[in-house]
Design a protein around this nucleic acid. Structure first.
Lengths: 154, 154
DNA sequence: TATTGTTATACTCTATAACTATA
DNA sequence: TATAGTTATAGAGTATAACAATA
């Protein structure tokens, strides 16, 4: 197998394994991947309208309605009306939602540390640079037209 | 942000971008991610029973029935009965299925090459080793009990 | 008229349980 | 009894289109 394919295959395998690990960590809760993704974005963005979330998640507004319905029913979010726009709703993390996100952020740090535990600081830095290069290349592949204008969120 | 998190975040972003790129390449066909995954495994394993596919894809037999139904209807696979077991079916790639897989393998090679085009041979090799270390760590996280027994398919 | 969200409808992926046919 | 697959049922994620409420 060529050297390029070896790198690519490992990236695919890592993607799969990370997903598996996430699914395992969800199993302890009543959350699904999509709902957790919404909570994660909400945590990042702060209180948001459903349309904002739909854009952030690259998903239809109708879909967000369903996800927020479920998250509201299980107590992770609330959606009081917008103070200055009675039609709009502002989706907000409840205490339970905030605590869950805090726990997940913590788990994420621990996993991140474990993954590179076999590498010294120099190796980690070179790895980061290699991955950075790949991210840039991939962004060019996925959206060639707007690649120059897109920036990863640092 | 810590160095560990930087590596982890890039891995997550790469996983997302690869998925996006795959979805884009499906858009030209009538295939979905799950159906393509089945075709891919079938291509790797050769003609297989549905139970074998269910195990390979880590999915229920009932689910495989649905996927194969759809792939048969669109002409990617056939399922003649097993020669020595009239109850069993042997799922097989049709010409269309084989050609599609050949094309996808080719695309995969090209993408793989593009991703690391900015790196010289030494950097590619170091990257591969770094990723290898991460794969091993992840396998340990995902299935701690059987980690020592599991081997990546080289 | 434009924005925000919901109702209506439909398709895909997924699972478990019960069942049929075969070995 | 064990294996291979399907029918039945159900839940989750997703989409588009039509609609209502608000601005």
């Amino acid at each position: 197998m060529s050297a390029e394919l070896e790198v690519f295959d490992r990236l695919l395998e890592i993607a799969l394994l990370i997903q598996e690990d996430l699914a395992r960590s969800f199993a302890a809760t009543d959350l699904t991947v999509s709902r957790t993704h919404l909570l994660w974005e909400l945590n990042r963005l702060g209180p948001s309208t459903q349309n904002t979330l739909a854009t952030a998640l690259k998903v239809s507004p109708r879909n967000v309605t369903g996800l927020v319905d479920a998250l509201e029913a299980s107590g992770y979010v609330a959606r009081p009306p917008h103070p200055r726009h009675r039609r709009a709703l502002v989706v907000t993390l409840t205490d339970r939602g905030s605590q869950t996100m805090a726990r997940m952020e913590h788990e994420r740090s621990q996993i991140a540390a474990k993954l590179v535990a076999d590498l010294d600081a120099d190796q980690q830095e070179e790895l980061r640079q290699g991955l950075d290069s790949i991210v840039t290349r991939l962004q060019g592949l996925v959206s060639p037209a707007t690649a120059s204008g897109r920036k990863r969120s640092a």
